[in-house]
Amino acid sequence: MIELNNIHKSFSGHEVLKGVSFKVEKGEILVLIGMSGYGKSVILKHVVGLLKPDKGTVKVDGLEVNSLKKNALADLRSRIGFLFQGGALFESMTVYDNVAFPLREKARLDRTVIEKKVLNVIDQVGLSGAENKYPSQLSGGMQKRAALARELVWEPEIMIFDEPTTGLDPIIGHAILNLIEEMHKRMHFTGIIITHELSRVFKIVNKVAMLHEGIIIETGSPEEMLSSKNSLVRQFLSGDTEGPISFR
């Protein structure tokens, strides 16, 4: 379970989060939507303690993230898969070594077991044949998929995806969401996804939250969001340029 309570965060005087609260139950996936630059990535980093709130609390499975000791935080993090918006692949390693890294360092599995798992997940994200390439030799979309493979391979209990489909072509994007859905059916991880592919992702998630100007303005099931009375939510979901949200 993930619970954010009244999170405030400023960067050098610029207040990005002004009291963000939401809750994701165990086994549930929440989709976070909102305009670019409004702090969605910042919220995710608070969930795992990579950023500290100026005010407010973050709880994951009942543990208060910001008061954990170093070791306890490391233990908690080693149950959380985190896909960074930019992928964050290790540039000094091949795709294979990137994906194998968490298994080698954390699980201490047998070589052959690791190889099987790694090749399997690389195949699932459609990267077979690129195992021995370095991240710099891949397109942006391929990097994203390799990064996703690095998280999926060790089957964490909690998964956080920062724009897993942005920059992918529609077919691959769809395949990735299907993969996430299939994984969720099998493992029932608790998750948060940031994505702009709303129509697709709405089929696989239980809950949607919309961030606007520093606060969560509405939370609900996909159906509730689609029929929301809030004009901000309606405009965002329909993608109209006319409305209360000004993008200039």
Binding site: K45, V48, L50, A74, D75, L76, R77, S78, I80, F82, F84, G86, A88, L89, F90, E91, F101, P102, E105, K106
Partner: peptide, 18 residues
Amino acid sequence: GIMRITNQIDAIEMMGLN
């Protein structure tokens, strides 16, 4: 520095590693 700004250091920490 590049590892820092591209979140590679965060990724190491996120795996519970130092």
